[in-house]
Design a protein around this nucleic acid. Structure first.
Lengths: 166, 166
DNA sequence: TTGGAAAGTCAACAAGGCTGACGTAACTTC
DNA sequence: GAAGTTACGTCAGCCTTGTTGACTTTCCAA
């Protein structure tokens, strides 16, 4: 959809100048996007990597370590460092799999859920303000462009996650 | 603007679930956004930090070090390390200011411009594909939401940069 | 002339990526 | 039941990119 370009001038939105603005918008917006959780995390012993792990464990409770590895796109050594501290500090529980005992199924503890909520409340508040300011139609466009910007493999991850909640 | 919500159900786009999707879209899209330059840079001695410096020097030739500091939001020690290697390698030229000789005005050398073009060609290609797939209206929404998501100070940076080219 | 801004530099450190190698338990296949 | 594979953890070492703190040089401006 949205492929009809009735006249040549509709392509003005594809000029290098327009693209550069989009690139810089991504850069500055991503700074804002991570700013609130970063602020909350600093002072604690955690960083952005812990936030990501917590987010996706909350998002998909019971997910395995290797699932998380492919979603986050880091090495197991890197993820393990993060996960270990979260388990040690009692924010994440790693339950041995029932069918396959090699797997560890990850869950947030109540304490972990509390931090998750604090972080996502902050991040959602900013998203909500931005969404409200821009309006529903802009939001739809926002999501379309972002989705088109993903690597195909990541897009599948995103879409797979997108509806799996219900 | 865009605040008219004729009926309650227009606010459906502000549910926590919608916001979570937006958050994950940002996460995955940003990975795609940086993937191509990262690929080009790996193997060279440069990283994402060098790319950012090169981008903004290209964008605002003659900009000073402290301008760059506020735009990039890093410490001068961190930026200096990047800038030093770029100057040593002959990609960036730091000209002593004529009015204020304390300032260094930064320019890309032909060699620097060559790398800049390679990097931004890759990044623009992805943006262009995403823009084309989503269409002009979606692009407008995309930019609106991103702009609303920035910190006010960063938004001023962005907007200040936005038109200064012509 | 003096205060302070702009720039650069040295040193030390931390977060969070990476690779490589190795170990162990558990599942799968022959 | 032996052999191979998978999932996970861990040790060691390295890199990039961020941080703070302390210090110097230059030089504009009050």
């Amino acid at each position: 959809m949205a492929d009809q370009t009735p006249s040549g001038e509709s392509l003005l939105f594809l000029t290098d100048e327009q693209l550069r603005k989009g690139i810089e918008a991504m850069f500055f917006a991503y700074r804002g996007f991570t700013a609130d959780p970063d602020r909350i995390l600093e002072g604690m012993d955690y960083g952005r990597a812990h936030h990501r792990a917590i987010h996706f464990i909350h998002r998909s409770p019971g997910t395995t370590v290797s699932n998380l590895l492919t979603i986050l796109g880091v090495t197991k050594q890197s993820l393990n460092r993060v996960l270990r501290t979260l388990v040690e500090d009692g924010l994440v529980e790693a339950r041995v799999g029932r069918r396959d005992k090699r797997e560890r199924h990850l869950h947030l503890t109540p304490k972990g859920q509390e931090l998750e909520r604090e972080l996502s409340d902050a991040q959602r508040a900013r998203m909500r303000a931005a969404y409200r300011a821009a309006g529903p139609q802009a939001v739809a466009g926002f999501r379309q462009v972002l989705e088109a910007m993903m690597d195909p493999e990541l897009r599948r991850q995103y879409q797979g996650l997108k509806e799996s909640g219900a």
